[in-house]
Amino acid sequence: MSSQITAPLPGIFYRRPGPDKDPFVEVGDTVEEGQTIGLIEIMKQFTEVRSEAAGVLTAFQIDDLGMVGPGDVIATID
């Protein structure tokens, strides 16, 4: 059964903790409930985006550095 990770607030979605760092997760990785999969920045404030379910990350719907709005689907987990 698929689970969707949605944006809690508007901003810019980052898949990495920093420009020279590896992504938090890649498509195909197993993620745990509560695991950080990215960050959303709004006005220089960063909020962690966490998985609400355990499983395999099957897709990102938002590109790295893409704009998100509240409730936008960021990723899908099976």
Rank of each mutant, 00 (worst) to 15 (best):
L57M: 01
L65E: 11
D78I: 12
F60K: 03
G38Q: 05
G38T: 03
F46P: 04
L9W: 09
G11L: 11
P70C: 08
Q4L: 13
V73G: 08
T30F: 10
S51I: 05
V56N: 05
M43P: 01
I74R: 07
P23W: 09
I37W: 02
G11S: 10
V27R: 07
D64Y: 04
G34T: 07
I12A: 03
G55L: 04
D20A: 14
F60D: 01
G71H: 12
I42K: 05
E33L: 02
T47P: 02
A75C: 09
V49G: 00
D22F: 13
A75F: 03
G66H: 04
R50A: 04
S2L: 14
E48L: 01
D22P: 12
P23R: 07
T76D: 09
D20I: 11
V68M: 01
M43L: 13
P10E: 09
T47L: 03
I5C: 02
I40A: 00
Y14E: 01
V56A: 11
D22M: 15
K44I: 06
P23N: 03
D63C: 02
I5G: 08
I40M: 02
M67N: 10
A59N: 03
E52D: 14
G18N: 11
F13D: 00
D72M: 11
E41D: 06
I77Q: 08
G69A: 15
M1S: 12
D29G: 05
E33K: 13
G66K: 03
D63F: 01
P8A: 04
P19M: 08
T30I: 12
